[in-house]
């Protein structure tokens, strides 16, 4: 099935739920008007990134009015968006929700919370415990949040769980200005998204935010990657953008015939060896 994905490369306001909801709604309407079938937002699109002690103040329950509003909008377009989720037992997660046909289809809680260098996520948030693919009208999808994708096992698990589309929601700070053409962080991500797509014969939709928070820039450059690892569409670097990428449904089928690595991937060997490694690790 051919479809159009919109990558909403927005600039959220730090800690301003209402403003960011308005930004998201405007982008959703824009996606609908442009004939997009799916709109993808960045990580923590509804809150901004360097929240620190604001985390509990901007957290949403899955039955919050904001979520109800997004559910309603998802009757007209599928939506993947990042926010802070609060659970019934008051844990706060860096989460991404996928909504379609008026309901929540999946919530992914970020597993790998970077807490090094300029990052401090695990100080403020609880860690997710699972990677699960889920069914959508575009086939099976897996969601990752930013740092999750830097752990090889995460997209691998999703692909083995049947995902043929990987959505990565990101708030990646720009750094590493050298003599090279692009930012160090952008170059690293571009390698990662294309290589992941190529390894797993999956499409990748990567949505990264822009703007500055306390002097730290987010570099944008959202991308759609074909299952052969070709970047087909890319958003502006360091500027707001709204990328409309036409997805050729047949490309996935052709790639999986041409390079049947996922067909040949041996889950039993992988599981057996990982179990052995786990067993021997404590010896």
């Amino acid at each position: 099935m051919d479809f159009t994905v919109a990558l909403a490369q927005i600039k959220p306001k730090l800690g301003c739920l209402d403003d960011n909801m308005a930004l998201a709604e405007a982008a959703i309407e824009k996606g609908i008007a442009a004939g997009a079938d799916l709109v993808v937002f960045p990580e923590l699109a509804l809150t901004g990134y360097f929240l620190k002690d604001l985390v509990p103040e901007v957290a949403l329950r899955l039955d919050s009015p904001q979520m109800e509003k997004l559910k309603k909008l998802s009757e007209r377009i599928s939506i993947a968006i990042g926010f802070v989720e609060v659970s019934a037992d008051y844990r706060f997660f860096n989460s991404a929700v996928y909504l379609e046909a008026g309901e929540i289809r999946h919530v992914h809680r970020k597993v790998y919370l970077p807490t090094y260098g300029l990052f401090d996520e695990q100080r403020y948030m609880a860690r997710g415990e699972r990677f699960r693919a889920f069914d959508t009208r575009f086939g099976r999808i897996g969601m990752l949040i930013c740092e999750d994708m830097w752990h090889l096992s995460a997209p691998y698990i999703l692909a083995m769980d049947g995902a043929m589309t990987l959505i990565c929601l990101s708030s990646s700070p720009g750094r590493g200005v050298t003599e090279s053409e692009g930012l160090g962080s952008a170059a690293a991500w571009q390698k990662l998204t294309t290589t992941t797509a190529m390894f797993l014969n999956c499409r990748v939709f990567y949505c990264n935010r822009v703007g500055y928070e306390d002097g730290i820039n987010f570099w944008g450059g959202s991308e759609a990657i074909s299952p052969s690892g070709e970047m087909t569409d890319r958003g502006a670097i360091l500027e707001e953008d709204f990328v409309l990428a036409k997805v050729d449904g047949g490309a996935l089928r052709r790639e999986r015939i041409f390079s049947p690595m996922m067909r040949d991937e041996n889950l039993a060997i992988t599981v057996k060896e990982l179990k052995r490694i786990d067993r021997e690790k404590d010896c």
């Binding site: 002690d53 500055y212 306390d214």
Partner: peptide, 10 residues
């Protein structure tokens, strides 16, 4: 332990 970004709310 009172930590907010300077761009709090901006």
């Amino acid at each position: 332990d009172f930590r907010y970004a300077r761009d709090w709310g901006k």
